[in-house]
Write a protein that binds this DNA or RNA. Structure first.
Lengths: 245, 245
DNA sequence: TCAAAAGTGTTCTTATTACACCCATGG
DNA sequence: CCATGGGTGTAATAAGAACACTTTTGA
């Protein structure tokens, strides 16, 4: 009979890609490591899962300890477990990503403020461990999710303008969108509440403010509605070579 | 300083949802457990990941030991890790799914043939551990994947008819499709090789045989082509109540 | 009065849907 | 000659893409 004890010598961690949106830019929260391995290099926030803790709970804990936020969008993405990914032994990590409103965010323990940074996703590279790969997997997932479910709103303040929403989509999808078509599409879904308010203190015509109507979305969902923004399709080629007489 | 040793007392397994397609029906390969816990109940094939083994390698190993097949479509889906999911201790499992051509499959060790079964996905329930939940997550992923990438062919013999392909999609998506529209769409992608052969020994007009053109697909991919079958959209409702004067 | 971003419709093109009959084969 | 599934096209509708000017505000 196999000695199962040999298998009970591993550990697992959760790593959390925390996305935020600010100044028209998609950002990720990173921590500078205080200890070896990878001391003084940046890494995704993460920690060991406690022996009596569910995976999702561990991811929530990591997020809350760092940001003070609860009830935040959080989803498991993928598990990374190559044999040599961690110098301390066999450690696999379950990657999560979360979406937070950067405006709601204040660093919790002032002591670590120094070592925590928002960084534009386009500038991040050279992270510790296999975190570049993890970030990339989570970003891919976000790209897919944002076209499939109305999660973009998690990254915006409660009240936002259509232009802000469009910029958010452009940042995530890394593409430009047509203003009129974007508005038409979003408004036709009938998921936004027009607050009948406008921006204040801007040096141009102030924009109307909207709010995501979560109740209506839940109701539409239950009626079989599916949120969908098309992928910008590059032309599917079409030329057929008939090879048979 | 934390005692990290406390964390190195866990184990992980891989579980593999192996899909096959036969007689117009989507099937899953299950094993009857020979030992406690859950003795004599059915479970997904899976096993502990060895200390020096990558996760993907473990999933491949489990698949190959059972089916003798290599170079098979295999993808990680999700990790399940509630604290009490395994009676032997803290064991999280990384779920994979694979797609195999059932016609290529012969059970490897005859000794275990008794305990291995293909079961229609619609009939499977009451699996060991949290395997019902795992199966359901993998099936959802397959539904998504089959509309997004040309993976259906992994489940069919090399040569197949368009009707077989349609039945496969219908089984996976759990819906009926229109014959003419389905054919038009599939053929317009120009990813099938018309073999200019027909079925033999059928008691009706024999159908043409086709083969998936993997090379062309790779080429199209690199040109930005994206495989896509639409979800059957239930009507998005549209009625707007204007709440503002 | 200028700069800056907000806001707004129409036309064209492409993709999706709905739908019914004749054909080829084996028994 | 009959039963069985194979194979085919068109018209209507819906969704997406392209595109430019006027409006409102603060400075």
């Amino acid at each position: 009979m196999t000695d199962f004890n040999e298998y009970f010598k591993s550990a697992f961690t959760v790593d959390n890609v925390i996305f935020g949106f600010d100044e028209g830019d998609l950002k990720v929260l990173l921590m500078k490591r205080g200890e070896e391995p990878y001391k003084d290099k940046f890494a995704l926030p993460g920690y060991f899962v406690n022996p009596n803790e569910d995976l999702d709970a561990a991811a929530k804990r990591v997020l809350e300890q760092l940001t003070g936020l609860r009830n935040v969008f959080l989803e498991q993405v993928k598990t990374f477990g190559t044999v040599d990914r961690h110098p301390a032994g066999r450690v696999i990590t379950i990657a999560y990503f979360s979406l937070i409103k950067i405006s709601h965010f204040t660093l919790q323990p002032a002591s670590i403020a120094e070592s925590v940074q928002w960084r534009s996703i386009s500038e991040v590279r050279g992270l510790s461990f296999d975190h570049d790969e993890i970030l990339s997997a989570c970003f891919d997932r976000l790209k897919w999710l944002v076209r499939t479910r109305p999660v973009g709103f998690e990254l915006l303040p409660r009240k936002f303008t259509l232009t802000e929403l469009q910029h958010l989509y452009e940042a995530i999808l890394e593409t430009k969108l047509d203003k009129r078509n974007f508005r038409k599409k979003i408004l036709s879904m009938d998921l936004l509440i027009d607050l009948d308010e406008t921006q204040e203190g801007v040096a141009h015509r102030p924009a109307r403010l909207y709010q995501f109507d979560r109740n209506k979305y839940e109701q539409f969902l239950s009626e079989g509605f599916s949120f969908e923004l098309k992928e910008n399709k590059k032309k599917n080629k079409k030329g057929k070579e008939e090879s048979v007489a």
